[in-house]
């Protein structure tokens, strides 16, 4: 299950930022590595909310700086809702 979440997040990030999934790891930093700006991040939050059927508060969204943090956030959210 966890690999599925990881692959899906990586796929969404790759699609949004126009890069190949192979270029993305858990350590990939949205701003430093992918040159994301605030609009990209807002789009990514929508992608993640839609992709995983959850709501990410603005406060939580601001704490997500790497792909690994995004994966971790989604795993925790799904555990809490189970």
């Amino acid at each position: 299950m966890s690999d599925e979440i990881r692959d899906k997040v990586v796929g969404l990030v790759a699609e949004r930022m126009g890069v190949e999934p192979e270029q993305i790891t858990e350590a990939t930093h949205f701003v430093n590595d992918l040159q994301s700006d605030s609009l990209d991040m807002a789009e990514l939050v929508i992608d993640l909310e839609e992709g995983f059927d959850l709501t990410i508060s603005d406060e939580d969204a601001q704490k997500i700086e790497t792909v690994g943090q995004a994966i971790e956030y989604i795993k925790q959210s799904q555990q809490q809702s189970q």
């Binding site: 605030s38 609009l39 807002a42 789009e43 929508i46 909310e49 839609e50 709501t55």
Partner: peptide, 13 residues
């Protein structure tokens, strides 16, 4: 279809 939270922040620009 999905409400205001699904509208793209890129729409206006």
């Amino acid at each position: 279809n999905s409400g205001p939270r699904r509208v793209s922040p890129l729409m206006i620009p």
